[in-house]
């Protein structure tokens, strides 16, 4: 108990002694955490969006004529030969006509006199909903085009390509902001601790002379690093929550109600704060090792 009280007392004294640098470090750590966690939030939500993709992800393979049951089996086996899919559905001309009629709703009377088989039969292929299948959908489409009797293959090509590029970009940004987070937290904290060490050099020297242990001298600095990491990361998360609420408020509308847009889960928040704290402790440790040759 006395150990904790003494350590805490020393830590507070250290932090007050270099409060300007402490503020800068806290600001930098929280900003780094905010940048990283913001892109992670976008990425996590993009993953959710991709999981909830429905019709946009389906490939429609238009055929020149309705396939017989043995032909359907052949198509099925050839499709599965390329990739695992979630669902394969054969749509006859009549089924397509009925869907079209339903889609037109009150305007369905425009179809009066139009033969029920005017739409071509088709196969609807639903790939497994994941980012990997998104990236492979173009190749899948090219493959389906080569199957016999196929007139045309259609999918939300542009949308999916853009979405895929966006996800790739976010991945790169996450890696970069992660590197930024590591660098700023460790280097800034190490720098601040070094400043504290220099300003307390005389006292540290004296502490050694009066019989302080290595732990007695080092622990307050590690504690200081941990505090900087924890407070900085928690502030960053707080800022992210504010930003998230602001975005939700700004873009409130039908799009946000249909698309999932959720905040990070508690375990992820805990993990990010823990990670930032750990990095700051490491930064602090590296500074102490270099400066306190005990």
């Amino acid at each position: 108990m006395r150990f904790l009280a003494v350590t805490f007392g020393h830590t507070m004294r250290n932090m007050l002694l270099t409060w300007k640098s402490q503020c800068m470090t806290l600001f930098t750590v929280s900003l780094s955490v905010l940048i990283f966690s913001f892109f992670y939030l976008v990425y996590a939500n993009a993953l959710q969006v991709s999981a909830s993709l429905d019709d946009d992800l389906r490939l429609i393979v238009y055929l020149d004529e309705a396939p017989s049951p043995p032909m359907q089996a052949q198509y099925r086996s050839k499709i599965l030969k390329f990739d695992q899919v979630e669902k394969i559905e054969f749509i006859s001309s009549q089924d397509a006509y009925q869907r079209f009629e339903q889609a037109l709703g009150t305007n369905a009377d425009v179809l009066t006199g139009v033969p029920e088989d005017f739409l071509p039969p088709s196969i609807e292929v639903y790939p497994i909903r994941s980012l990997d299948s998104l990236s492979r959908i173009k190749r899948f489409s090219d493959y389906l085009q080569t199957l016999p009797g196929v007139l045309k293959v259609q999918y939300g090509k542009q949308w999916i390509d853009r979405f895929h590029s966006f996800i790739q970009l976010i991945r790169v940004v996450i890696i970069l902001s992660g590197a930024l987070l590591v660098m700023t937290t460790t280097f800034m904290v190490a720098h601040t601790i070094r400043l504290t060490l220099v300003s307390r050099q005389q006292e540290l020297e004296l502490l050694r002379l009066v019989g302080a242990t290595n732990n007695y001298i080092r622990t307050p600095f590690l504690f200081e690093g941990a505090l900087q990491g924890f407070i900085g990361a928690a502030s960053g998360m707080g800022a992210l929550l504010l930003l998230y609420n602001w975005i939700k408020l700004q873009f409130a509308g039908p799009a946000t109600t249909t698309l999932p847009f959720t905040f990070l889960s508690w375990p992820v928040i805990g993990l990010l704060i823990g990670l930032a704290t750990l990095l700051c402790i490491l930064g602090s440790f590296s500074a102490i090792r270099r400066f306190t040759r005990l």
Partner: peptide, 11 residues
């Protein structure tokens, strides 16, 4: 007190 504090002497 610094000399006693390193021994965690009660305040």
């Amino acid at each position: 007190a610094i000399a006693m504090e390193v021994l965690y002497t009660p305040k």
